[in-house]
């Protein structure tokens, strides 16, 4: 049994830990709210872009655009989005598992990785996966140009024929308590179903094909942006949950240890009393 002093020190240190986890939970909660707002803020742009893409798909032969070209998949690029920092529960391990299962499904296919986030990079490097690009600290000040630059790098590798398919692996933010790892094909672009219900003919300026050519890179940029936003919100939600659990566990531990402290204190008092009584009896 630990001594009274040891027990008191442990209670004090767990209280300190609890203060830290509680603070981290509050910070994560605030960041998550911001991240959720960012997801909502991206929606009008997403809807319109999708709209225009569908409208155009009807009047353009998409096979003419290099970003739509399906090739037999011999070389696959995987962009893995994780967090830069830890202490966020199972957030990173769940996407990493997704990579492991993707890798076991792709036997005979040459895999190369782009790591977005420190945690993903160390996961990939530790397992000797071929990491060809990494992007660190994207989430510190998450802004659209970061997404555009990642998308540009991935696109040029696809268009040059260096890889035959590009897949994004990230955590999708479903709700505060649910983040689901997903693998989303970025390139080649899966053609959208076209809409033909328009009562009026649209004027396309310039012609649909050139319009499509300038639209698809933006579409890809946006897919990456959306994945970053989802992952960011998921990370904060996951951290918030993990820190909430940690705070609760610390509370339970403190309760348990406080009882132990009291027991130890009581038994010391009892012992002292017995000593005194024993001494007194000897005198009398």
């Amino acid at each position: 049994m630990a001594t009274l002093k040891q027990l008191r020190t442990r209670v004090a240190s767990i209280k300190n830990i609890q203060r830290v986890t509680n603070a981290m939970q509050l910070v994560a909660a605030a960041r998550m709210r911001k991240a959720q707002e960012d997801i909502l803020a991206a929606r009008p742009y997403a809807d319109k872009l999708e709209n225009i893409l569908r409208r155009l798909s009807g009047s353009v032969d998409t096979t003419l655009n290099p970003m739509f070209v399906e090739r037999p998949v011999e070389r696959l690029a995987v962009a893995l989005i994780t967090s830069d920092r830890g202490l966020c529960g199972g957030f990173n391990s769940s996407v990493s598992r997704q990579v492991t299962s993707l890798a076991s499904e792709s036997e005979g296919i040459d895999l190369s990785f782009a790591a977005i986030g420190r945690k993903g990079r160390s996961f990939l490097v530790n397992r000797d996966y071929n990491v060809v690009a990494d992007y660190m600290d994207v989430f510190r000040d998450l802004a659209f140009p970061a997404a555009a630059s990642i998308a540009g790098d991935l696109t040029s590798r696809f268009v040059s024929g260096e890889v035959d398919r590009v897949v994004l692996v990230y955590n999708e933010f479903r709700s505060v308590s649910q983040q689901i790892p997903v693998a989303h094909q970025l390139l080649p672009i899966v053609p959208a179903e076209s809409v033909e219900d328009e009562s009026e003919e649209f004027i396309f300026e310039p012609d649909p094909r050139r319009l499509m050519d300038s639209l698809v890179p933006r579409h890809v940029n946006f897919q990456v942006w959306r994945a970053l936003l989802e992952s960011n919100a998921g990370e904060q939600a996951s951290r918030m949950q993990a820190m909430d659990n940690a705070t609760k566990n610390a509370g339970d531990l403190i309760e348990q240890l406080t009882q132990d402290v009291n027991k130890a204190r009581q038994s010391t008092i009892t012992l002292e009393l017995m000593d005194i009584i024993g001494g007194a009896e000897a005198v009398v």
């Binding site: 225009i52 409208r55 155009l56 328009e198 009026e200 003919e201 649209f202 004027i203 396309f204 300026e205 310039p206 050139r210 319009l211 300038s214 639209l215």
Partner: peptide
């Protein structure tokens, strides 16, 4: 280009 109300539906880059 300029747009006023009632412009013909258009998509432009």
């Amino acid at each position: 280009f300029g747009v006023l109300t009632g412009h013909h539906p258009m998509v432009a880059s």
